[in-house]
Design a protein around this nucleic acid. Structure first.
Length: 588
RNA sequence: GCGGGUGUAGCUCAAUUGGUUAGAGCGCCGGCCUGUCACGCCGGAGGUUGAGAGUUCAAGUCUCUUCACUCGCGCCA
């Protein structure tokens, strides 16, 4: 007989009755009836009830004092349960194990929280004792679910001619983008590796090397602050790159993959079989965000033309260049209590707006603090454009275009929450396309890259030379789902001259480009295929599929929001000898 | 860096307007119990109410400071 087990804890059925078997697992729960003792024995697979009887009083006594979460090995006969004692909740509920031999492999101290209870435990504590937390059914399911999703992804990619390559973890620092994690070099004092923010350069180099379709479940490292859907420090993305492709071909692969994953693993209905495409500009104007939640129709309207001529001071600011008047209709909003509208004023200030004007339409007339400043024409225009009816409320944001859009985009979610429009049972994927190549930096007024500088501008060199930089859009796209950005991607710029020009507009002269990106440009000078790709976030995708509110629920050992690993104690101080070897001195 | 929320027993929570010795369930320890599966019953231990200061006859409760966690903003080309 195997030293530890002949079966797992989810395996034994009626057909095993009278067999002498051995099980190992954790003491999940214990029910001591004095004369008879039941223990639920648990492993990754499930639970089997094992029974101790007074025939062996010594063993019964020992068993009755085994602490929860201890690991034991038991040997005995599989016994049929009488009809009234069958537990239909367990796969093994028709049998139980009559224990004849007990071995305690590892006795557990009292655990800081209970594995068998479903209480939501303080997350700090859960992370500190993650190895116990992961024993809980929900976490075990999530982590295995994640593994299964990744298996599906790998099978799909391989089946479509992609190969998985590993790219370096010790890479180079780059001045663009997120903060790097730096790794000091021992052999080269004063120099540093950087952990890759993404394998971006390497996957492009693979294309130039002649590999046609690359993918990798790739670890990425960014030293930026956390969000509920963004792990600090590190995360995994499905990194994809393809040679000789158009944007549409990248979309086609990702569409198919997402649909496969949702249908196979999700319990959600897909809102769109064909994922809609929306331009960045339209997404901002209609949804107030570049990652629109398309599960519900509640759209922003632009009233800049209609209202900037108004007598009302709030609206006449719309005449200023760059300022937009955006509006959103809240159907049935007239019912909302006064406190809701008052609370929104503070809310608006926290969301980048000076305030939030609104008009209540009730009993055929318009009401609210600003109505007395509005003409009949103004009101007609508002009603026409927003479709506001009796009982509705229209909110207005007057600010720089981006701020006005973002403000009402955030309000759109507040309203959707009140109206319960965000259906948790569906997934609405969409593509956001035509991201601008450049934007004007707020504080400096400089033209800077708004996304990846290596993306191909639409129109190529001609566009760079002839168009207003702020009007140039790139072959740069995002795939979003339910208001979450799953991934950014782009058709890359593979032509050195266009690259120099693009960088020139972005404020880098030739020398700087050569200094920072010379290795990439050199590579492009020896025969580079047109190529493009994308990199959906694996953690986020699994989070959405598993219906979890936080990314940490689908990561085995996540960092907390301060980027610490409380279990192993990272980051930590290191020995002075280590620092000395690296030529590093800590300055207070 | 900034703003919101939370912090009471090992865990999850309660404690009226500021008012008696801060309670309950689970867990833990001891006892009883031969069919439970959230077993049941009896008893017990366990608290610097995150920390510090203040107001008050009286503070878990009010004020200030601070710490921890968390959500959001900034940031994430």
């Amino acid at each position: 007989m195997h030293l530890y087990r002949t079966h797992n804890c989810n395996e034994l059925t009626k057909s095993d009755i009278n067999k002498n078997v051995r099980l190992s697992g954790w003491v999940h729960h214990r029910r001591d009836h004095g004369g008879v003792l039941f223990i639920d024995l648990r492993d990754q697979y499930g639970i089997t009830q094992i029974v101790f009887h007074p025939e062996n009083n010594e063993m019964l006594d020992i068993a009755s004092h085994i602490s929860y979460e201890s690991v034991i090995t038991v040997t005995g006969n599989v016994v049929e349960r009488s009809e009234e004692t069958v537990n239909s909740k367990l796969a093994t509920g028709e049998i139980e194990l009559f224990v004849s031999e007990l071995n305690i492999e590892s006795s557990a101290k009292t655990t800081p929280f209970q594995v068998a209870e479903s209480d939501v435990v303080n997350e700090d504590l859960r992370l500190r004792y993650r190895f116990i937390d992961l024993r809980r059914e929900k976490m075990r399911k999530n982590i295995i679910f994640r593994a299964e999703v990744i298996t599906t992804i790998r099978e799909f990619m391989e089946g479509n001619g992609f190969h998985e390559f590993q790219t370096p973890i010790l890479a180079n620092s780059s001045p663009e983008g997120a903060r790097d994690y730096l790794v000091p070099s021992r052999i080269h004092p004063g120099k540093f590796y950087a952990l890759p923010q993404a394998p971006q350069q390497y996957k492009q180099l693979l294309m130039i090397s002649g590999f046609d379709r690359y993918y990798q479940i790739a670890p990425c490292f960014r030293d930026e602050d956390a969000r509920a859907d963004r792990s600090p420090g590190e995360f995994y993305q499905l990194d994809i790159e393809m040679a000789f492709v158009t944007q549409e071909e990248v979309f086609a692969i990702v569409d198919e993959l997402m649909k496969l994953v949702v249908k196979k693993h999700g319990k959600h209905k897909l809102v769109f079989e064909d994922f809609p495409q929306i331009t960045f500009h339209d997404a901002m104007n209609k949804y107030g965000t570049d990652k629109p939640d398309m599960r519900f129709d509640l759209f922003l309207q632009d009233l800049t033309d209609e209202l900037s001529g108004s007598e009302c001071q709030i609206f006449s600011q719309g005449k200023k260049p760059g300022v937009a008047i955006k509006a959103i209709n809240y159907p049935g909003g007239a019912e909302a209590p006064r406190s809701f509208f008052d609370g929104l004023q503070t809310w608006a200030k926290q969301n980048g707006l000076k305030g939030l004007a609104y008009i209540v339409f009730e009993e055929g007339i318009a009401k609210g603090p600003i109505v007395k400043f509005l003409s009949e024409n103004d009101l007609t225009a508002i009603k026409e454009k927003t479709g506001a009816k009796d009982g509705d409320v229209v909110f207005f944001a007057v600010a720089k275009w981006k701020a006005a859009c973002h403000g009402l985009g955030a309000l759109r979610y507040v309203l959707a929450e009140r109206m319960e429009l965000r259906d948790p049972n569906v997934m609405a994927f969409c593509w956001v396309v035509d991201f601008p190549m450049y934007e004007k930096e707020d504080h400096s007024g400089n033209i800077v890259f708004s996304h990846n500088p290596f993306s191909m501008p639409q129109g190529g060199m001609k566009a760079l030379e002839e168009q207003d930089p702020l009007d140039i859009v790139a072959y740069q796209y995002d795939i979003c789902c339910n208001g979450v950005e799953l991934s950014s991607g782009a058709i890359r710029n593979h032509q050195p001259e266009i690259m120099y020009k693009a960088f020139e507009i972005g404020g880098y002269d030739r020398k700087e480009v050569d200094e920072h990106f010379g290795h990439m440009i050199r590579a492009f000078e020896y025969g580079a295929p047109p190529h493009g790709g994308i990199a959906p976030g694996v953690d986020r995708l699994v989070m959405l599929l598993a219906d979890e509110p936080s990314i940490r629920e689908v990561i085995a050992f996540p960092k907390n929001s301060k980027a610490q690993d409380l279990l192993v104690g990272a980051p930590s101080s290191v020995m002075p000898e280590q620092l000395a070897e690296l030529n590093i001195r800590i300055v207070d």
